[in-house]
């Protein structure tokens, strides 16, 4: 009955390395694959995680999530975890520029990739325009969802400095804001693009 990440991992491992065999019929391949031994969950490894351009060493197990590495083991607590079920987006980080839910990304999947978290965006002395505009527009009420969508929006703006409202919406569709600051979030992302393009100033 209960869903847990360990079951998720067992399923992945036990179903014949979906990641390697997937094609359009990954599921079929998974069923067809011979059972492989489940890695013992207590196996520990240490690896280097590149976060916001800095390298960090962290120990992890096969089942350790990227969120746990970032926010608990390395103490970069800016990334919030809310649902822990890959459904709210609060825990988002970028891996090589693409947003991922860090609560359901295994630490081992992030090794060797460039990880970007909210800490990479800006700080008190040097606010990123998105942080400044978000503040001015009230794009956060409680702020719990904020680091998550900011990171995803950064990923969007890195690829497209002039997104339309619909593009912003679909980029952020995987983020829940329970305070429903959505319309301010949309205006923030659009106007951040304007500032980054040099058409608006703060």
């Amino acid at each position: 009955m209960r869903y847990s990440r360990r079951d998720f991992l067992k399923a992945t491992a036990g179903s014949g390395l979906i990641a390697l065999t997937t094609g359009s019929d990954g599921v079929v391949a998974a069923f067809a694959a011979p059972p492989v031994p489940i890695p013992t969950p207590m196996t520990k490894e240490t690896a280097t995680f590149n976060i916001n351009g800095r390298n960090y060493q962290a120990e992890y197990e096969a089942r350790t999530t990227l969120w746990e590495v970032i926010a608990v083991k390395l103490g970069l607590t800016g990334t919030n975890r809310s649902c822990n079920r890959a459904s709210c987006g609060a825990c988002s980080v970028l891996l090589d520029g693409t947003p991922f839910y860090s609560c359901h990304t295994l630490a081992m999947e992030a090794v060797g990739k460039k990880i970007f978290t909210v800490e990479g965006l800006g700080d008190e002395k040097n606010l990123h325009p998105m942080q400044k505009i978000g503040y001015l527009y009230m794009a956060a009420d409680c702020g719990f969802c904020t680091p998550g969508w900011e990171v995803t929006a950064k990923g969007l703006l890195d690829k497209n400095l002039n997104p339309s409202v619909d593009e912003v919406k679909s980029a952020l569709a995987g983020h829940i804001c329970r305070c429903a600051a959505y319309s301010a979030i949309i205006r923030t992302v659009i106007d951040t693009g304007k500032v980054l393009r040099g058409e608006a100033e703060l």
Partner: peptide, 16 residues
């Protein structure tokens, strides 16, 4: 409000 945009608002969940 600004700490919310920096990932620095001190929710109990952020205490490590």
């Amino acid at each position: 409000a600004i700490p919310r945009f920096l990932g620095k608002a001190e929710y109990a969940t952020r205490v490590v």
